[in-house]
Design a binder for these strands. Structure first.
Lengths: 359, 359
DNA sequence: ATTTAGCAGTCAACCAAAAAGAGTGCTAAA
DNA sequence: TTTAGCACTCTTTTTGGTTGACTGCTAAAT
């Protein structure tokens, strides 16, 4: 720390910068060999070692133990932040993305659901989730089919709003030809491209059947798949209180927790688990362990209940926790909560609040 | 699994229920001895063991390994949920609490901050935080003093809105008597009880000084402490994306993470770290490791920036992550974000939106 | 017929010692 | 001034043995 005022040599700066950036990337102590080989420092490892030893003496680096590489000290990071780091300029695309995210507005129902989810998590002390189906905002831009064999094909759907591609394996109870499947995609693109879920009706289906004289039975089966996919694509799932799971020993195993969380990120699996269930049912549902659930969550329990307003399902609220959860408390919380939300909605909502809002 | 239709004996039900509830409570396999001694099952451990063996054969229990106790199987939980668990009835107090939580409404600025925090966390992939000072809503209901020695005493403040009690150790640059300190609490309760931060003015301070002829110098020092406390009490801090920290190896150590999270829960430490800083400064601040920070977070970095609207600080937004964070990205995100929020506020806010809303 | 006491058997959890591996500091040569 | 090479240090992983908890079973007691 003696030479505080002395400027570091360019080589020292280069090495320090490389060490810090390597450490930021890898999270591990950085050795001389690594710097030479991977960070392309044009000196031998011995030279680098000497420089590192001096940087350590100056207080910019630390050694966790004798036989480890170097790690930046706080002073090192400070120097990096103050002098070494170059300003990262957002691309216009990134800036636009940020702006878009910032200006998203929530509908009244979304707010209620979000609030309810927070409350549920706080009261039960588990992770809570809300599911908000809004299939009406979803349309399929393009359909593709891939023939597998006479009784199986893959239906590929490209959604228009998001850049999401969904595939469904379709199993048939009768034989079809490669041509039937090819024709199918033509017809789908002709009739259903850009059509929302609410607008798929008998008339459209009959039109498609007419256009496929060789195999009209296909239509019904395929439309069912499309229906399911739109439901999945349109669903929004949100979590609150994920961190609460940390306190339970079953999630002390970081790996398990990680898997769980990435299952959360993916959404689709959970959406499927929740939304396949009969939408009209308004009882509280309990999924214990592997019952009907995603593989990943095989020692967790999901409890959820649909929320209704004027007989229409506006979403669902649920709790996720270890199998050994306090069922009594969770069940009563969910029930009470759904009651209260119903009241709240009936009393406070302006008539139009149920309408979907366009973003 | 043979006797699916056969009813379980009452004794088996009792044992199964006890095992499940013990396991829910403890999270560990339950042994026969525990059931006899702690769960008050009126049979010997041998008898319980026999019953447990049968319950296992029937599929309600499982054994992680030969010399462990029993754990409920999924079927066991299922049976418990369907037949054994008794409905928990919320007390009216709990129900009221739930109701209160549900009906909390957010102000416009809170929404903006919350949204910004989410965006910040999503973009940087670290945990984001927002700080919202609203000291004007805080008053102190009662003051107590505890004399330590001639130059030290403790100031105890009981807030009126929340049930929070705050203590401050006050160090004096001169000697006082036990009587001075006792008198101080009298005067404080007489003059400052129920007074908000905005209403503490010179006139009140002079009144207090007059009421304490023996030691008027105390007033200035104490009021400063009270000021700080009100600022702390009134601050609201919220986190988004806590789970993102899980992916960084420095937080793989569950204990460290837990500590971090409970520091989050406590808020006060972080509030102190953030709000002690000169409020008027609107540069981005970087706290690396132990720099000025709470002990707990000594290998994390906090980057934050005050958000201003019409020259008034409306809150702060920040990022928390490992010291080896991607400074470049975080710095630019925070800057860009605060710019955007300023725009958003200026363009979208109705004039009254800055006013504090009463809950 | 049911319950209980007692004992041998099993397996995870814990701890200490040994082996492996990674990276350094230093010396001597280039 | 830089580099090659080697001995040294300290963590990490592996191994082996000990401990402790709980069971299942058998034989005695109710």
């Amino acid at each position: 720390m003696d030479f505080d005022t002395t400027e570091l040599s360019e080589r020292k700066k280069l090495i320090l910068k490389s060490i810090i950036e390597a450490h930021i990337k890898l999270g591990e102590p950085v050795g001389s060999k690594y710097l030479m080989q991977e960070a392309n420092i044009p000196y031998s490892s011995a030279t680098i070692r000497n420089e590192m030893a001096e940087l350590e003496q100056l207080g910019y680096l630390e050694q966790p133990h004798t036989s480890a590489g170097r790690v930046p000290s706080e002073l090192g990071y400070r120097f990096y932040v103050d002098s070494l780091v170059q300003q990262y300029d957002m691309t216009t695309k990134e800036a636009a993305e940020l702006n878009k995210m910032l200006s998203v507005k929530m509908s009244e129902i979304d707010k209620i659901l979000e609030n309810a989810t927070k409350v549920a998590s706080a009261i039960t002390n588990y992770t809570a989730l809300s599911l908000r189906p809004r299939p009406s905002s979803i349309t399929i831009r393009r359909y593709e089919t891939v023939y597998l064999d006479s009784r199986n094909f893959v239906l590929v759907m490209i959604a228009s709003t998001q850049d999401t591609v969904k595939t469904k394996n379709v199993k048939l109870p009768f034989d079809v030809t490669k041509e039937d499947i090819a024709k199918l995609s033509e017809v789908l693109n002709g009739v259903l491209s850009g059509v929302g879920i609410d607008n798929i009706n008998i008339s459209l289906m009959m039109r498609m059947e007419n256009e496929m004289p060789d195999c009209p039975e296909l239509v019904g089966i395929v439309v069912k798949s499309i229906y399911e996919t739109m439901n999945e694509l349109g669903a929004e799932i949100k979590f609150e209180g994920v961190n609460r799971l940390l306190q339970y020993p079953e999630y002390k195993d970081i790996d398990k927790l990680q898997k769980m969380l990435s299952a959360f990120e993916d959404k689709n699996d959970i959406v499927k688990a929740v939304s396949t269930i009969d939408q009209s049912d308004d009882e509280t549902k309990v999924f214990i362990g592997s019952e009907n659930m995603v593989k990943i969550m095989d020692d967790s329990t999901l409890i959820y209940k649909n929320l209704k307003l004027n007989g229409k399902t506006i979403g669902a609220i649920g709790i996720i926790g270890p199998c050994r959860m306090d069922y009594s408390k969770v069940l009563s919380t969910i029930d009470k909560l759904s009651d209260e939300i119903n009241h709240l909605c009936e009393n406070n909502l302006v008539p139009g609040a149920l309408r979907e809002d366009k973003d």
